Amino acid sequence: MRVRELHLRAELGEMPRLAAWVEAQAPGLGLGERQLYAIQLCLEEVVANLVLHARPAAGAGITVTVRIEEAPLRVTVEDDAEPFDQTAIAPAAPAETLEAAQPGGLGLSLVAAFTTARDYRSESGRNSLMLRFA
């Protein structure tokens, strides 16, 4: 099994590089269009949440490592921010009317819908969120 890994700065400007990297991995992993879309969408949401909401540990910047493993297909996002468990965040309720709708807040519901399992742990100053895909 080959592990593919990418290191990112915790900046929104890194998102295009993340998307291009995932797309470049697709042929070697035998990913279909649906799987590729699911992985890209989930990674975009998880990494954007880290960039926008995680707090750096001890005043340092946040670094993000993305790892893709096959059989079963797993994507792991690791960071060195303060503990931030995205699996513990309750999904936002959809707005009852179009007028009441606000942008954002539904991404983690999409992550839950596209993955078969999500596991979070924090150890030795590193956070790890593993996403499993069918």
Rank of each mutant, 00 (worst) to 15 (best):
E23H: 08
A24D: 13
A24Y: 01
G28K: 09
G28W: 07
G28Y: 09
G30M: 04
R34L: 15
Q35C: 02
L36A: 12
Y37P: 00
Y37C: 08
Y37S: 11
I39T: 06
I39E: 08
L41C: 12
C42P: 00
L43V: 03
E45G: 02
V46H: 03
A48E: 15
L52A: 09
L52V: 14
H53F: 13
P56M: 11
A58V: 02
A58F: 01
G59F: 06
G59E: 09
A60M: 10
V64F: 04
V64T: 11
T65C: 11
T65G: 11
V66G: 04
R67N: 04
I68W: 00
E70M: 12
A71D: 15
A71R: 15
A71N: 15
P72L: 06
P72S: 08
R74N: 13
V75W: 01
E78D: 14
D80M: 05
P83K: 04
T87K: 03
I89V: 15
P91I: 07
A92I: 03
A92G: 08
A93V: 14
P94R: 11
P94V: 09
A95L: 05
T97Y: 06
L98E: 14
A100C: 09
L106V: 08
V111T: 06
T115D: 10
A117G: 13
R118M: 11
R118G: 05
D119E: 15
D119F: 03
Y120N: 10
Y120F: 15
S122I: 00
E123A: 13
S124I: 00
R126G: 01
